[in-house]
Write a protein that binds this DNA or RNA. Structure first.
Lengths: 192, 192
DNA sequence: AGAAGACTAGACCGATTGGTCTAGTCCTGC
DNA sequence: GCAGGACTAGACCAATCGGTCTAGTCTTCT
């Protein structure tokens, strides 16, 4: 969830990274373009050059980028896991660690970036496609464990549903316990 | 979640109802005071008279009111239920119906009103207290079914975690299926 | 070198924002 | 009736909002 610093990011990427971070912290409507520009160190003309529809385009790009990052976290978490539960547990622990790094102040990275944004069909379609990518990315691992397509999809969805609720509660409580205990919450029961 | 119309609401209540509805639909930052005032049919001076800290006070009042309403829904849902699962299922069905009534556009009433608002400790404390009231209100029913204090609390929290994630997904998908299937999601496994 | 397009820079703009404040009207109690 | 407080009403304000636009600089290709 942090940009790789091995290469100088392009202007466009700098805008996306800054927007992602600020939208997550402040929400879409609570973030002004001036803040994004200041953090990215980019002038306004550049923003409209790269994102002709302005703030709304930025939200679409932030959602896309977030989904790609989450899929990376999911893939890392499930790599080498012997079964779904282990992968999901690692995912939750990784996200709990991210939560701690973010100092407990940020909205859930998935839902904060994909469920809040401009009131436009374009964004909505983007966000939905991004979310479906995440679900598909997670379900793929379920299938690799031998789950049926349906069961894998269901498991992925359940994980994401629980993840959001848990992150939100962790945020309120200022600690990541609900994230770390999510697997037990979900699979202390689902496991079969 | 709709004001009782048996009595003419006070100016203050009109503001709270309007704010609650608009904050749920647009988010706190996405709602301007002018909109709230227009919907409530109240002049600005009145707002500052009743809510000296302005918009932030309104958010606190909206959160409190929302919690009270949700607790009412919970109590209704669990009234007469033979066990936790039945009560929780009825709660989910009631909320799914509310979702349909709201035309799928509103943020989760609990989390949208309690987790988004002014970046202030006062609001945060209010919201956290409100949420804890909801959890306690639900846990009470668990205890009435013979659950230990801890298990009842855990069950209430799990329900709310799942509820938020499900509502959010229902909102994206424009249908309440995830809300209606939440009990099976949670208790097709937890049930013991 | 020159042309064209990509990209940066920041001034400008009308609209909206939430809060402040003055001037009333209404209500209650003496 | 009068005084004081509760409450309504809306004008005013500085700041911010996101978008537009002009004027450059940089890059690439011929």
């Amino acid at each position: 969830m942090f940009p790789a610093m091995s290469e100088e990011p392009t202007t466009k990427d700098r805008l996306i990274f800054a927007a992602t971070r600020l939208f997550r912290q402040r929400g879409y409507d609570g973030t002004g373009l001036a803040e994004v520009l200041a953090e990215a160190g980019v002038p306004k003309g550049s923003l409209y050059h790269h994102f002709p529809d302005g703030k709304a385009d930025l939200a679409c790009a932030a959602a896309d980028w977030t989904a790609s990052e989450i899929i990376r976290v999911i893939d890392d978490a499930f790599a080498g896991a012997p079964d779904w539960r282990h992968g999901a547990t690692t995912y939750c622990h990784k996200m709990a660690k991210l939560f701690d790094i973010l100092n407990s102040a940020d909205a859930c990275p998935i839902f904060g970036l994909l469920f809040e944004g401009p009131d436009q069909n374009k964004f909505r379609a983007h966000a939905e496609a991004a979310f479906n990518r995440i679900i598909a990315g997670a379900a793929r691992h379920g299938e690799a464990f031998g789950m049926s397509v349906e069961a894998a999809h269901e498991a992925a969805e359940t994980l994401m549903i629980g993840f959001q609720g848990s992150w939100t509660l962790a945020r309120m409580r200022r600690n990541a316990t609900t994230l770390r205990s999510l697997p037990n919450r979900l699979y202390g029961a689902i496991a079969r």
